[in-house]
């Protein structure tokens, strides 16, 4: 019984952790959207900044991956 409660808590926690991915989605969308609006204003400068955009995406996405990791750890490792 006690183990069930622990497991239930772990699964609930895993589900809650998944909401963090939404934040990462918003972040990545924000980065790309701003890049695109800037790129449309000044297309000649856009090509040089694609790498910077990918770095920004990577940083924003890392946090979403962390929440995914937390969810997996709660489901499988706790």
């Amino acid at each position: 019984m006690e183990g069930d409660i622990v497991q239930m808590g772990a699964y609930i926690g895993a589900g809650l952790a998944c909401t963090g991915m939404g934040g990462a989605a918003v972040g990545v969308g924000h980065v790309v959207g701003n890049f695109l609006s800037g790129a449309l204003r000044n297309p000649s400068a856009a090509a040089g900044q694609t790498a910077t955009m990918f770095i920004g995406i990577a940083f924003a996405e890392a946090l979403g991956i962390f929440s995914f990791l937390v969810a997996l750890l709660l489901m499988f490792a706790v």
Partner: peptide, 10 residues
């Protein structure tokens, strides 16, 4: 940490 988990997680 983020460098490794980003790749593996994806």
């Amino acid at each position: 940490l983020s460098h490794s988990i980003r790749l593996a997680g994806n």
